[in-house]
């Protein structure tokens, strides 16, 4: 089944110049594998189209259940130049939560939040 990323992982965004990093933390150790397989830099770049103008890098720290994404050109030219109301991109990490991830059906009872299955 497909679920929003939010059902299996949580995120936080941080800023540095015109770069936003978004860490994706799996709620449980085995939730990390489908994230690694499906949450590719290319997919994230596509998801953030229109906001992120540069490259997307990914660092995989499997032993901590973490994927760290580095989004270049994500903050409108930099925190101080950005015309975005959220010029630090503090809320940007939430944009990752809606990405759909395919997971085994029998994980359903372990998902976070209200019933999240969409397919």
């Amino acid at each position: 089944m497909h679920v929003p990323l939010r059902a299996i992982a949580h995120t936080r965004s941080g800023d540095k110049g015109d770069i936003s990093n978004i860490v994706v933390v799996a709620y449980e150790a085995d939730f990390h594998a489908p994230l690694t397989a499906q949450l590719t830099p290319a997919r994230v770049k596509t998801h953030f189209k229109g906001v992120v103008t540069g490259a997307v890098e990914r660092y995989d720290v499997a032993r901590l259940g973490v994927l760290n994404f580095v989004l270049h050109g994500a903050l409108g030219g930099g925190v101080s130049r950005s015309l975005c109301l959220d010029n630090y991109g503090k809320a940007l990490g939430a944009a990752m939560l809606s990405i759909e991830i395919e997971i085994p059906d029998d994980w359903a009872p372990r998902l976070r939040g209200p019933s999240t299955a969409s397919a």
Partner: peptide
């Protein structure tokens, strides 16, 4: 969870977080 979110906050390469004092490697935490 709170530790992990903060450990990677404003971090790019988690194996090479450069500070004036040392290059930190969070990947072995």
């Amino acid at each position: 969870q709170t530790i992990l979110e903060q450990m990677f906050y404003e971090v790019h390469d988690p194996a090479n977080y450069i500070t004036p004092d040392v290059v930190v490697d969070f990947t072995s935490a």
